[in-house]
Amino acid sequence: MKTVKFLSLIAIFVCFMSCSSDDDEVLKDDPVAGLSLVTSFEANGHTVELYSESSNFTTGYNEISVRIKEAASDRYFSNAEIGWMPVMHMADKEHSCPKSEVALTENETVSKGFLIFQMPGNAEEYWSLTLNYRLGGVTYEADGRLEVNPSLDGKQKISVFKGNDDARYVLAMVDPEKPGVKINDFKAVLYKMEDMMNFSVAEYYKITVDPRMPGMDNHSSPNNEDLTYNAASRMYSGKLSLTMTGYWKINLKLLNADGDVIKGEDVTEENPESSLYFEVEF
């Protein structure tokens, strides 16, 4: 009887380990594990899927993973060549937004890029996304409507402005996604508007950083590092020091390569905030 019980325990243990191992293998092999399927649309017998770390697209920086599958078989295509064009359809005009190239990831069925939405949609005005993609030497087009919401926490993570040089810019915060009481990695992207449909990366500017707590006598913090251009990532990188939890206004000032101020002001006793800023609260 003891032998039977012992063998039964071994069988249960083996089954548990096998099932756990199988589950882990499935999770490990899922190239979009941890991401949310935000939306999908069908065309050409294909399903285009758009994934994000958030369950929604919001104003500001959105990193998006793209997969394309054959609708009939649920088989995902590998090595797709993808281009995209986002368009905001307003009552009296249309415009696009800053966007990256769409590049393949380590998993050949997943491509990734980012879109920077300047404004949310509503019942009458909305964003659409057109994808031109190439599979096996054949080019296809697919498009769908996107729901873009305001920032989830209601804080400003993007600024669209006209500079002192009369050029129009889009500045968006990339990191920190989850700020903490520490010296945070600070990243942003800066684009110049060429026309309503085209934006170019604004290179080799400088963005000064002065975080303040308006509710705590507007005190600042030590060891911040200004944002400077990184040619490899095509982003601006620096450090953001947050010394306590609460609401912070990150006052910014944009300077060109010659040191001329394009937008923003110094924070002083007479001027408690810059006209160019981001916000975080945690």
Rank of each mutant, 00 (worst) to 15 (best):
H95D: 03
K192N: 03
E94A: 09
K5N: 11
K206D: 01
S159D: 13
V148I: 14
G264D: 06
Q156D: 04
S40P: 06
T139A: 10
Y126G: 07
S241V: 03
P98A: 00
M197K: 13
S241G: 02
G238C: 11
P214S: 08
R75K: 14
V48Q: 01
A103R: 15
T59A: 02
K157Q: 09
I10M: 10
V174T: 11
E81L: 15
A72F: 08
H95T: 13
E124S: 15
L152T: 15
M193H: 02
S151F: 11
K178T: 14
S36Q: 10
D258G: 07
D22R: 13
S18Q: 09
D143K: 13
A103L: 15
K253I: 11
I12V: 10
N62T: 10
L104K: 12
K93Q: 11
G259Q: 09
V201D: 02
A43I: 07
Y236M: 06
S21E: 01
N198G: 07
G163H: 12
G154Q: 10
N223Q: 08
I183H: 09
E70P: 06
Y204S: 06
H95V: 04
D195I: 13
N164R: 05
G215N: 08
G113F: 12
N164M: 04
A43E: 05
S274V: 00
V32G: 00
L115A: 08
D195F: 14
L227K: 11
G163P: 06
E25D: 13
L27A: 04
E281I: 14
N224H: 01
D258Q: 12
E70C: 09
S159C: 13
G259L: 06
C15W: 06
F278D: 06
R145I: 14
F186H: 06
F186G: 08
S20V: 10
M196A: 15
T243Q: 02
T268I: 03
M235L: 04
H46I: 10
H89P: 04
K99S: 12
